[in-house]
């Protein structure tokens, strides 16, 4: 196969771009920069003492990073809502079930095994 057909823009592309403004490489790099800064901020909680604010700050940072990767790199922002439902539905279910489990286990051991 010669290099020529590879570089020609395929048909499917036109269809793809109909979904409004599709992000450009420049957008992606910007998101990556934001993620880099957020990671640096995460690291800062290890270097500096934020006292009681450290953990809430980390939780927020994790959530923001999560949403950025999901919305931009995984295109959830531009795709059908169904995909977001699978992503966040799975996350919510896992979170609920396992947090409940941990609470039950810790509560049971805190009250002493009957």
């Amino acid at each position: 196969m010669s290099a020529n057909p590879e570089t020609s823009a395929p048909q499917a592309d036109a269809e793809h771009d109909e979904h409004g403004h599709h992000p450009t490489p420049r957008d992606y790099v910007r998101i990556a920069l934001i993620l880099a800064v957020l990671t640096l901020m995460e690291y800062s909680t290890y270097v500096f003492d934020f006292g009681g604010l450290g953990i809430p700050l980390l939780v927020v940072l994790i959530a923001v990073k999560f949403v950025y990767v999901a919305s931009w790199f995984m295109h959830l922002k531009f795709d059908t809502k169904i995909f977001s439902r699978f992503m966040y539905g799975g996350l919510a279910l896992a979170f609920t079930l396992y947090v409940l489990t941990l609470i039950i286990i810790l509560f049971a051991s805190a009250t002493g095994m009957e």
């Binding site: 995909f83 992503m87 799975g90 996350l91 279910l93 896992a94 979170f95 079930l97």
Partner: peptide, 12 residues
């Protein structure tokens, strides 16, 4: 996407 949704339960 269906599969990825279920992976949360695995890592969770």
């Amino acid at each position: 996407w269906v599969f990825l949704g279920s992976e949360f339960l695995f890592f969770g």
